[in-house]
Amino acid sequence: MQAIQWDAKADVLSLVNVPVPTAGHGQVVIKVAYAGVCGTDLHIIQKEFPAAEKVILGHEFSGVIEEIGPGVKGFTTGDRVCVDPNRGCGNCRECFKAQTNHCQNGGLRTTIGIFRNGGMANFCVVPSEMVHQLPVEVTLPQGALCEPLSCILRGWENLNNPSLDSRILILGAGIIGVLWSTIFHHKGYRNVTVSEPAEGRRNRISALELGYQAVHPDELKANISDENIRETGYDVIVDCSGFPPAIEQAFSWLRSGATFVQFGCCPPKEKISISPFEIFSKELKIVGCLINPFTMVNTVEGLARGMAGSYLKDFSRLGIKMFRLQEYQEAIAQLKKGEISKAMFEF
């Protein structure tokens, strides 16, 4: 079968031919239908995010069960499924506290598509407990969005239901900023602004017809000052850019009692400068968000199902473009240029 493999030692991403995997005990083999390229994948190939030395990428994917291994219950061949690529070890302090995303033995240290072979291939072998059947309302392409949506749902849970009259700012209009926008709208929020330097991405937010403003960060900066922060500042800021200068600048735009959600993945060694006095005097909350502990079920059964016929119906409006696996270099190039919000491989 064909697969997109990252070789860190050789510093090469390439299309390779590898054997089709077989299902061992407790595993299923998924015939992959759709696999998304995540911003984390770009960080991996830029050596800004840890991964196995040699691995088939792809932690966002959907498909059909091709083979079922011994000991697997609840699935049949032909089932339409998506995959939660993360799991804890189940035996450590973090797992006992339902913090599997912080597991020192599992979590991000064993993620499918990062540390174990993933879904950018014709077939992928997956432990059955990490597989979720798709409701009839959710298509296979939408199923490949369930993993990023489950991470956003984790962020939403950490945000803890802000009031509906909140002024909200989203930093960045890549696919994560786009999906955050649709979820805020889905949940009833109407006073939302998206900050994005690229005109094409701003136009994409406008094309969603959510009624949200999409503005250049310089425009925001020109209209906000310490003197008018009560009127022009924000109750919630969600960073989807992972760009430290943007994060540092936006932090001063928080109103009293506001929350800053750090969702975007920054390179590990990057730093920002913020004022401790501002955190103290405004009683600000800074919220991190690491992957998707226990949010996949609610995503598949609730969020994706509820949004499938509306916000997730037209992929072109979301800025998602389909590619063949052999077109991986062009897919990554268009993604890096910001010509699309997301590249997805269609098998």
Score class of each variant (00 low, 15 high):
residue 91 N to F: 02
residue 170 I to E: 02
residue 272 I to F: 07
residue 258 A to N: 03
residue 65 I to V: 15
residue 32 V to M: 02
residue 24 G to I: 11
residue 3 A to Y: 07
residue 159 L to Q: 06
residue 73 K to W: 00
residue 10 A to K: 15
residue 125 V to L: 05
residue 225 S to T: 15
residue 8 A to K: 15
residue 290 L to T: 09
residue 198 A to K: 14
residue 51 A to Y: 08
residue 218 D to P: 00
residue 110 T to E: 12
residue 8 A to I: 13
residue 324 R to V: 01
residue 284 L to G: 06
residue 176 I to D: 12
residue 195 S to V: 03
residue 342 K to S: 13
residue 17 N to T: 15
residue 202 R to S: 09
residue 143 G to H: 09
residue 85 P to A: 12
residue 157 E to T: 09
residue 216 H to T: 01
residue 239 D to A: 04
residue 91 N to D: 14
residue 218 D to E: 12
residue 260 F to H: 10
residue 325 L to G: 08
residue 3 A to H: 10
residue 82 C to I: 10
residue 10 A to H: 12
residue 43 H to C: 03
residue 20 V to R: 15
residue 210 L to R: 12
residue 173 A to C: 06
residue 30 I to S: 09
residue 129 E to M: 10
residue 113 G to C: 04
residue 197 P to Y: 08
residue 334 Q to C: 09
residue 32 V to Q: 02
residue 298 N to F: 00
residue 332 I to K: 05
residue 342 K to V: 04
residue 225 S to G: 07
residue 270 E to S: 15
residue 229 I to F: 06
residue 153 L to K: 13
residue 334 Q to N: 15
residue 252 S to P: 10
residue 37 V to T: 09
residue 324 R to W: 00
residue 220 L to W: 00
residue 250 A to R: 09
residue 17 N to W: 00
residue 81 V to M: 11
residue 3 A to R: 06
residue 77 T to I: 06
residue 188 G to C: 05
residue 79 D to L: 00
residue 106 G to T: 12
residue 324 R to D: 11
residue 282 K to H: 13
residue 202 R to D: 03
residue 227 E to N: 14
residue 47 K to Q: 14
residue 335 L to V: 07
residue 68 I to S: 14
residue 279 I to M: 08
residue 89 C to E: 05
